[in-house]
Design a protein around this nucleic acid. Sequence first.
DNA 1: GAAGGCATGTAAATCGTTACATGATTTA
DNA 2: TAAATCATGTAACGATTTACATGCCTTC
Lengths: 183, 183
Amino acid sequence: MNVELTPTGRVILGMIGLGRRTGYDIKRLVDDSTRFFWAASYGQIYPELKRLERAGLIEGRAEPAGGRPRRVYELTPAGEQALREWLTSPGELTWELRCEGFLRLFFGDALEPDEAIEHVRRMRARHEATLAELRALEPATREERDELGHVFPYLTLQGGIALHEYAVELCRRMEEQLAAVEA
Amino acid sequence: MNVELTPTGRVILGMIGLGRRTGYDIKRLVDDSTRFFWAASYGQIYPELKRLERAGLIEGRAEPAGGRPRRVYELTPAGEQALREWLTSPGELTWELRCEGFLRLFFGDALEPDEAIEHVRRMRARHEATLAELRALEPATREERDELGHVFPYLTLQGGIALHEYAVELCRRMEEQLAAVEA
DNA sequence: GAAGGCATGTAAATCGTTACATGATTTA
DNA sequence: TAAATCATGTAACGATTTACATGCCTTC
């Protein structure tokens, strides 16, 4: 067995594992949840759905019957197994960050002191904005936990909030440090 | 003016801004510093060096003369200006994370309780390993600060260390939380 | 003289975003 | 009836990794 999942295949399989879904659903769900640590776009999702179906991991059913034409997918037994295998596989956990804030900060010696402080302020604003988005997701995620018993999306959201809160604090400390040096 | 820099072009320009460099140098420097928030590979670096030179932002000089043949680049005045323009430009700061640890955690409801705890333990180990790598970079980065006056790479490293320390703490708290629920 | 680090590069494959095209249904 | 949302998809482009190829120089 041991089907190799593509990066996007992983989110899709996981999302369908949480319930029957259309490609559109998956995109919306990703945008409202995993986006902050794992994004996906239509250009990836729809082709990947077809690949996963050809591989026998998911099965789609057309659901026209009066309503809008849509194709709803669910996991096959093989798909359920592949999902579990991935979730428990011992391979390295990829961790990749692309953060322009940190990159610009790294090159901060090319800036005037006040420009550098201003930059850190912008980094902080960036994290504060993300924080606001995350906090806005809290009610719906809690509801999902209470009503569907999905506790891990909520736990994950709490973790994300904590991390960005810490990042905000860290920026504030850097601002103070830089201001002290300038004075 | 306002030359559009590609993502990889940014690191390259910044790195050359810190001193004359070959493509090989840049790759090593990136691997020892920005990699944790901005990676780059040979397949990007060498073609991008040529593009930047064609665009007039950097200038390479062959330095054979007995030693190994190498091509050393430095910023042109236009390159210096483009670097400063980028560093102070008001555009959105990209922040993209691809973290399989969080992704698997998000789907943790498909796991047994002890499997989920084990996963968080692995996430923590992951951050601890990164932390060890970052701490190993401290002496050299401090030296660079003291001898070349590059204070921002050091500041950035401190920030990275703090963030991963916090992530480790966060994992520990999650482990406790999950263990409490199980009991 | 073998191994390891210095040095430059390319080709192919993969991965991902953006923009576009299309059209149905629901709600204001 | 207009706007918003649901819904599916593709093409083009851009970004990135991986693997390969090559060869010099220094150190053991």
